[in-house]
């Protein structure tokens, strides 16, 4: 089901993220998804996340769909030129995968194959444009498609707590102009910043899902502050994670923090996107505590 239909119905749309394994055994991922994530509306499948080579996003989406889940196909411009991107979009449509999240992608230098050639033939904006073009029955080369044209829910990302928030809003506007229908955000740890961002972003009239990472430890929070663009964990939260190590280790502190952020931001957004990063089993408790 298209995630945009849920937004249209006024639902508070909940999605979670799964990362395919580095290998061909996917049973564990599917079991976890069915056990812990069957309550969410849709499941993002990452595309060689952080430029680390893994099992493909499209194949994983198909397996999840066959298991009765609703996948969101993440597609980046890092590894494919415009021919491969369009071909994969057609493949997705043929397999009945309707939800897309279209991204530029991390640079190859940051991953586990830093020697790889970064492609970036298209970028997130031109990829959204291309998906929309395919929906009109024409490819980027101007050639007509044969038969029924594909139809997608075209999603994109934005980074509300980036220190270059003006540039992020500019990019968001370009994505909307190119055809983006909904947005998921980078992880938010500072509701105040997110609310300020949404005050400016609401003019675009597109649904936005708040990005959430359940913080696992003070070390993880500091690591993200130092290394992950667009993420800033305030000092007070780091102190909270430090205060009771056992409680933090059990995931209770992280769930409390994440639930608080969701509650504070909920009136300002149209959904939440949870990046559990291995803590998929904690998602049901988080949603319950957040009152979703």
């Amino acid at each position: 089901m298209k995630i945009t239909e849920l937004f249209d119905r006024g639902e508070f749309v909940v999605s979670a993220e799964v990362g395919p394994p580095k290998g061909i055994h996917i049973d564990h991922l599917v079991e976890e998804a069915k056990t812990y994530l069957s309550g969410v509306h849709a499941l993002n499948v990452t595309d060689n996340q952080s430029s680390v080579m893994r099992l493909g996003s499209l194949a994983t989406c198909k397996v999840l769909k066959d298991a009765g889940l609703n996948p969101i196909y993440q597609l980046t411009c890092r590894d494919r030129n415009r021919i491969a991107l369009q071909s994969d979009l057609l493949s997705a449509a043929m397999l009945g995968i309707e939800n897309l999240l279209l991204l530029t992608g991390d640079h190859t230098r940051l991953g586990d194959h830093p020697q790889a050639k970064p492609v970036f033939d298209l970028d997130s904006v031109s990829l959204i444009h291309t998906a929309k073009l395919l929906e009109s029955g024409v490819d980027l080369g101007g050639n007509p498609l044969v038969g029924q044209a594909p139809s997608f829910a075209k999603g994109a990302v934005v980074s509300p707590c980036s220190d270059s928030v003006d540039a992020q809003l500019t990019k968001m506007e370009r994505k909307v102009a190119a055809g983006a229908e909904y947005f998921q955000t980078q992880a938010v740890f500072d509701p105040e910043k997110f609310i300020q961002f949404m005050e400016r972003a609401k003019q675009f009239g597109k649904p936005v899902q708040l990005g959430i990472i359940i913080p696992k430890s003070a070390g993880m929070a500091k690591f993200m502050n130092d290394n992950v663009a667009g993420i800033h964990v305030p000092a007070a939260l780091i102190a909270e994670l430090k205060a009771d190590k056992e409680k933090t280790k059990a995931g209770i502190t992280g769930i409390e923090i994440a639930a608080r952020i969701i509650k504070a931001c909920k009136p300002y957004c149209q959904g939440v996107h949870i990046m559990a990063l291995g803590w998929e089993s904690k998602v049901p408790a988080l949603l319950e505590l957040a009152g979703i």
Partner: peptide, 29 residues
């Protein structure tokens, strides 16, 4: 821009610097 993007900034700028080369200011900023 490390990725030679022509439609604006990616999400990889940290403190105004490029994620790929921290000595390089984000071109789109």
């Amino acid at each position: 821009c490390s990725k030679s993007l022509v439609n604006g900034q990616c999400g990889g700028a940290k403190n105004g610097m490029c994620e790929v080369d921290p000595t390089m200011e984000c071109g789109w900023e």
